[in-house]
Simulated assay, not measured.
Amino acid sequence: MWMHATCYLEFNTPVATPFLFMLRPRSGWQQWVSREQYVLTPSVPVVEFTDTFGNLCQRLVAPAGRFSVHTSVDIETAEASDTAAGAHFVEVQQLPDDTLPFLLPSRFCEADRFSEMAASIVTGWAPGYDQCTAIVDYIRQTKRYAPGTGQEINSACEVNERHQAVCRDMAHLGIACCRALSIPARMVVGYFEHLQPMDLHAWFEAYVGGRWYTFDPTQGDHQGGRVAIAYGRDAADVAIYTQFGDPVELLRMDVAVERMDEPSY
């Protein structure tokens, strides 16, 4: 399927302010970028680099006053996320090197504090994909998805003590539990066509059966097109923008996602 996604950010910057943005999805085996646009108003010099997780990052200094970023992308992606019930657990010594950072505790995913809890959740489930499914089911049963309520980032431990959470924080809990079972897990931020209210979305992927699979505690099934923008250990690695120095005001943020016909260009 083809999707068209846009993101508009507008800031009020009292003084010239350094920014780091992460707003460009990259092509991969699950998605293919056909056309994109990236407009800065006013126009300023930008340096782009690839971080340690392969994300496309844009570095710039916004001038004092109003500053906006408008991105759009036409992208081909799957109509539903792949599933693989029964996919096997990959022993740590057999994991690819690039999955190993996603086994370790991180700032918002304290995997070392979830060993007993994760083991109890997956009792009776086959090691691998089915254990990840059990973890997602547990999160859905114990946490109410409450979009728009989480201004501060919560760690997995903090989420575990609450009854409701946003997508980002629910992903933190799922990641921590997977890592506690020696299953690599990473956070993903991107677009999801069925999200209501529309916004950027967060979910997680776990490495089982020799590849990464999508898991989303906020959604009841795997239907719907997804566009991944950034991957990381937790929310600290996948912020769509990071501002340095004196605080700035985010005046406006608009996200839109819709299906489109296959482009003829």
Rank of each mutant, 00 (worst) to 15 (best):
T142N: 14
V69H: 06
W212E: 02
T218H: 08
L23G: 02
V47P: 03
V189R: 11
V188N: 01
Q31G: 00
T142V: 04
G245S: 06
Q131I: 01
P45G: 03
Y231S: 02
C109T: 00
A156Q: 04
P217S: 09
V122P: 11
H172P: 01
S68G: 02
Y8P: 05
T142D: 15
A146W: 12
A206S: 10
L181Y: 04
D261S: 08
F244H: 12
G86K: 15
Y191A: 02
Y207I: 15
N154F: 15
A126Q: 06
Q243H: 13
N160A: 11
Q243D: 01
G210E: 04
H4G: 07
S72G: 13
D112A: 06
P63H: 01
V92E: 07
T149Q: 07
Q196L: 09
G220T: 01
S27F: 13
K143I: 10
D112H: 12
G28Y: 07
L20C: 07
M170H: 03
T13M: 14
D221M: 04
C178S: 03
D97L: 12
P217C: 05
R226K: 02
L173D: 02
D221W: 04
E91S: 04
S27W: 13
V46Y: 15
E76P: 09
V136N: 09
D130P: 14
A165Y: 15
H4A: 06
I135C: 13
R259V: 01
V238P: 03
Q141V: 11
V61A: 11
W2T: 00
V73T: 04
T133W: 15
E249V: 00
C157W: 05
Q219M: 12
V46C: 07
F114E: 10
L251Q: 09
R144Y: 10
D261F: 00
W2C: 00
S43Y: 14
E10L: 10
T218K: 12
H4L: 12
P96K: 01
V15A: 05
P101N: 14
Y265Q: 03
A202H: 03
M3A: 08
P45K: 04
G225W: 04
I75L: 12
D216I: 13
V44M: 15
D261H: 12
V136H: 13
M187I: 02
D112S: 13
E76L: 11
P263D: 12
R211S: 08
A236N: 12
D216Q: 05
D246R: 15
H222C: 08
G128R: 03
V227Q: 01
E249H: 05
E258K: 15
S264E: 13
G128N: 09
G150R: 04
T77Y: 09
Q37H: 13
S68P: 06
G225V: 01
T242P: 08
